[in-house]
Simulated scan of single mutants.
Amino acid sequence: MIPRIALTPGEPAGIGPDITLAIAQQAWDAELVAICDPQLMQERAELLGLEVEIQVINSPLGEPSPHQPGTLKVYPINLTAPCKPGQLNPSNASYVLYTLHAAVDACIAGRCNAMVTAPVQKSVINDAGIPFSGHTELLAEDTDTHRVVMMLASKDMRVALATTHLPLRDVADAINADMLEDTLNILHRDLQSKFGLANPKIAVLGLNPHAGEGGHMGREELDIIIPVLEKLRASGMQLDGPLPADTAFNPKVLSNCDAVLAIYHDQGLPTLKYASFGEAVNVTLGLPIIRTSVDHGTALDLAGSGKADSGSLKSALQMAIDMSQSTQTS
């Protein structure tokens, strides 16, 4: 199966357009459709010295065909204001969101099999007066999904998050039995359906240092996490934990699990990004569509310089292709 993949280049002043153009230089067993401003892509290609034929299309329809190097199909959405590499402009915040909404719509309608997103700049979207906490939350709202799970994956590990973009002082209040059970059910189900793991093993971290140390460093493990794990183990899930976060990321634990569930953002992701930065992929689980993304930010200082590394976007695209094909054949 040749899938059709919607690409959103993200913040126009960042490296998203650069790395989108970079991956367009090679062959892919998928049809790539960038949802963005075609003039932006043409101007950035000229700045980078890349020969890319921009092919404007009215809608991604018909039978997908493999991507041809040196071309890029673009479903056009125009910038709100002119864009210079490295210079944020809040006027283009709405443009960034329009590209994301269009990609979601294309996937829900079946015109595309998956969406792959380059980085956005959360601060400039909020500076424009638009409340925005991240891709993950927007995609959940656009697809009417009650709960989604953010997971970063590399060749060596997968780390999912029980909570995502919350201030640290709010994390403990956000942890309750229902949300943790929902999160583990989503993670377990998508590891089966989208990654082909028949009976996945999940290591679950504790919230507190030393996983609470028997209640002496917090009771969330005793009152919430352990009862949920016991309940789900009784239903057949393979769950290990709660584990102290400072010792969980070791070869013995990682070799015996298919994914780690961290309780909050900076508990699990620093280790994965240290080990796999530039190669990790952000996957949104629980959605009715497939969405992958890069593991890095907009790198405004590199935009238009030709020095941006497209490795994470390549990995995200390949994972989206693999997941699309797996879903179609399962």
Rank of each mutant, 00 (worst) to 15 (best):
A140M: 13
L191N: 04
P60D: 00
D258S: 07
M323Q: 15
P69M: 04
D301R: 02
F249V: 03
L285E: 07
E213Y: 12
A245K: 07
H265T: 01
I186D: 00
E51R: 14
T327M: 11
I263C: 13
A81N: 13
A211R: 08
A93D: 03
A234S: 15
L317P: 01
D258E: 05
A177F: 00
L100F: 13
N113Y: 07
V148D: 00
N78T: 14
D173N: 15
D246I: 02
L239R: 01
F195K: 07
P69D: 03
A106E: 12
S133W: 00
I35W: 01
A203G: 10
N282D: 11
A211G: 12
E213A: 14
S305P: 07
S312I: 02
G218D: 08
S91M: 08
R4K: 09
L72Q: 01
N282L: 11
G306Q: 02
L100M: 15
C107Y: 03
A259L: 08
N58E: 15
K73P: 00
D156I: 10
S276G: 06
I202A: 01
K73M: 12
S193F: 05
A259K: 11
C36Q: 04
I125K: 07
T71V: 00
M237H: 12
L88G: 08
A22Y: 03
S255A: 15
S293K: 09
P227C: 13
N176H: 15
S293H: 06
L152F: 15
L287I: 10
N282F: 04
S154N: 10
S91V: 01
A118F: 05
P17M: 10
T183E: 02
Q68H: 12
G49N: 06
M115F: 09
T292A: 10
V260Q: 01
L207F: 14
I2C: 06
I57S: 08
Q267M: 09
L138H: 10
G304D: 01
A13V: 13
C83Q: 15
P288Y: 11
T183W: 01
K231W: 00
A114R: 08
T136M: 09
M151F: 02
K314L: 07
T117R: 03
N126F: 05
N92F: 02
G86H: 08
I23T: 06
A27D: 11
A27T: 14
L100D: 05
P242Y: 04
A128Y: 02
T284A: 04
M151Y: 01
V120S: 11
A177D: 12
V148E: 08
A320S: 14
T271S: 10
T20W: 05
M151H: 07
I226H: 10
S65I: 13
G62R: 09
M157L: 13
I77F: 08
D173A: 15
L187Q: 05
V33M: 10
N199E: 14
R169L: 04
D178Y: 04
N176T: 11
R291D: 04
T284M: 01
K84V: 08
A245M: 08
D322A: 12
D309Q: 11
I54P: 03
G215L: 09
H188V: 02
L139E: 05
T143K: 07
G212E: 09
L180V: 06
G278T: 09
T164A: 14
V96I: 14
A248T: 07
G268Y: 09
L88T: 09
S276Y: 04
A109F: 00
A299R: 06
H101S: 13
A275H: 11
L229W: 08
D223N: 15
A198Q: 13
P85Y: 03
T99V: 11
D295P: 04
